[in-house]
Amino acid sequence: MIARALGAGAAIILLGAAGVWVITAPEPLPAAMIEGPPGDAQRGAAIFAAAGCAACHIAPEAEIDDAPVLSGGRAFASPFGTFHAPNISPSPQGVGDWSDAEIMDAVMRGVAPSGAHYYPALPYTAYALVEPQDMRDLIAHLRTLPPSEAESLPHELPFPFSIRRMVGIWKRLNMSEDWTLEGEISPQATRGRYIAEALAHCGECHTPRGPLGGLDRSRWLAGAENPSGDGRIPNITPAGLDWSEEDIAYYLESGFTPDFDTAGGEMALVVEEMGRLTAEDRAAVAAYLKSVPPVE
């Protein structure tokens, strides 16, 4: 009887482990999303700016210019440990040897060429909403940028967060292909939603998170604690941001607020990127922010 019970217990454990292995498996993009026309590097420059790639992947203290060096190295503190932005320049140390499909899997699904999960410090939950052709254009532009031989730094994460396989469970809880702002909105606000929710991933900083680090979409853009522990990221719903659409668009272009203050910290880099967009796209983001439900 004891041997039979032990055997049954072992079988249950094995079945449970097999189930966890299955539900935590990485899910690359379907082939239909990867296949398509070659990317347009010139068009990809605007996608690259809207996506804020340089703001995270330039070296510490470096400045964003027309051809930024995406050598990585910036540290991002969080309650789960410290993440280091990797080298994503077109070099062997970066992503120069990767195929377009491998880059798309990484950015839109959080899946490495090796098949491992990337941590959601890479905002692939937002980039999952990006149009595949826009991503191909972004990649084409990325390949025109200067290469860097800098080696990517390892993340500093304690156990159990160091177990990448468990990110698969996090993805099942937090990955979605639905827009947060749904319902009837203007064509201008619809364009702004695409930029703000997908490309610029505004919610990643401005939305509070739950205990496991997933976004609390019921309080979308309502402000959040700074992951570094330094201050608070502001509420940019209409309940917390009473600027006009013109004020918002001008801030995204220049960094100047209606109160004659200027953008600082991480937001200064975001404004540098947003300032490279067209006036129409900045106005669209402003229209979107005015369409978001107010959250006190």
Rank of each mutant, 00 (worst) to 15 (best):
114 S>T: 15
123 P>E: 10
150 A>D: 09
192 G>M: 11
183 G>D: 14
104 M>E: 02
79 P>C: 07
100 D>A: 01
173 L>R: 14
106 A>T: 03
171 K>L: 07
185 I>M: 14
76 F>H: 09
145 L>R: 12
148 S>P: 00
148 S>A: 03
124 Y>P: 07
122 L>I: 09
77 A>T: 11
74 R>W: 00
202 C>M: 11
89 S>F: 00
121 A>Q: 14
187 P>H: 03
154 P>Q: 10
78 S>A: 13
166 M>K: 03
103 I>M: 01
141 H>A: 09
182 E>G: 14
174 N>S: 15
125 T>K: 13
202 C>V: 08
77 A>N: 11
192 G>R: 06
149 E>M: 07
186 S>T: 15
126 A>Q: 07
162 S>F: 05
100 D>K: 00
118 Y>Q: 01
194 Y>M: 06
146 P>S: 12
117 H>N: 02
156 E>W: 01
182 E>L: 13
143 R>K: 13
145 L>C: 12
179 W>Y: 15
172 R>A: 13
79 P>W: 07
153 L>P: 05
133 Q>V: 06
133 Q>L: 04
177 E>Y: 15
118 Y>C: 00
144 T>C: 10
95 V>P: 01
202 C>L: 13
115 G>D: 10
203 G>Q: 12
148 S>H: 01
163 I>D: 13
181 L>W: 12
123 P>D: 11
187 P>S: 05
172 R>H: 14
143 R>Y: 06
205 C>N: 12
201 H>S: 14
123 P>I: 08
121 A>D: 14
95 V>T: 04
206 H>R: 12
160 P>Y: 07
133 Q>I: 05
142 L>H: 05
155 H>S: 12
113 P>W: 07
175 M>I: 14
87 N>C: 02
